[in-house]
């Protein structure tokens, strides 16, 4: 029987040789350079009129947090959204593929999109810049800001349910 296995052994050794020769380049992995991920969203509200002495309000959302925004009742604000690492400029450059949606109780906050400088090349709003009008004193509630990636899907009917979410930020808004 021993003789029988000679050809096998030869072939096996050859195979082993081949394996070891191909696996010589003993390489270690390189850390993956993470593509720039969205990790935080900052909402800045500037009063339209500075006459009343209203201050600018700002809050930053990160995973697992619900930051609070203290706003003045019955006031108009110009709202601006920025992302970490200046990623909002990328979103601005691909305005046709993105839209930011706002969700808040009407008596707390009314969000107006369609600001001329915020429209994409198809005339659809992007949502990085909006106007927000606060309700009466004493109201408080949650404002949800959702950035949706709607590549190939953004049109007149695409709402918050369409596309994939890049970030979903919740803010507690209270009016005093």
């Amino acid at each position: 029987m021993k003789k029988l296995f000679k050809p096998y052994l030869t072939a096996f050794l050859l195979g082993a040789l081949l394996i070891s020769s191909t696996s010589c380049g003993d390489d270690d992995p390189e850390p993956v350079e993470e593509g720039e991920n969205i990790t935080s969203l900052t909402l800045t509200l500037e009063p339209v009129s500075t006459a009343k002495g209203v201050n600018t309000a700002t809050a930053t959302f990160e995973a697992g947090t619900t930051p609070t925004l203290q706003l003045v009742p019955n006031t108009q604000y110009n709202a601006t959204i920025t992302l970490n690492d200046n990623l909002h400029t990328e979103v601005r450059n691909e305005a046709e593929d993105h839209e930011i949606f706002f969700n808040a109780p009407e008596n707390l906050l009314v969000v107006q999109k369609n600001i001329p400088e915020d429209l994409d090349s198809n005339g659809r709003p992007l949502g990085l810049r909006t106007r927000m009008i606060t309700g009466n004193a004493g109201e408080s509630g949650t404002l949800r800001v959702t950035l949706k990636h709607q590549e190939g899907l953004k049109d007149d009917n695409s709402d918050v349910s369409v596309g994939d979410t890049d970030i979903e930020a919740n803010f507690t808004v209270s009016l005093q």
Binding site: N157, S161, T165, E168
Partner: peptide
């Protein structure tokens, strides 16, 4: 399928509720 690429649980729940892809008619 383009619309099976979702970003969050909420996106999935939206898709289930919608019952068909958002651009199905187009």
């Amino acid at each position: 399928l383009r619309e099976s690429h979702i970003g969050s649980v909420q996106d999935l729940l939206y898709a289930i509720e919608r019952g068909k892809p958002s651009r199905a008619d187009k």
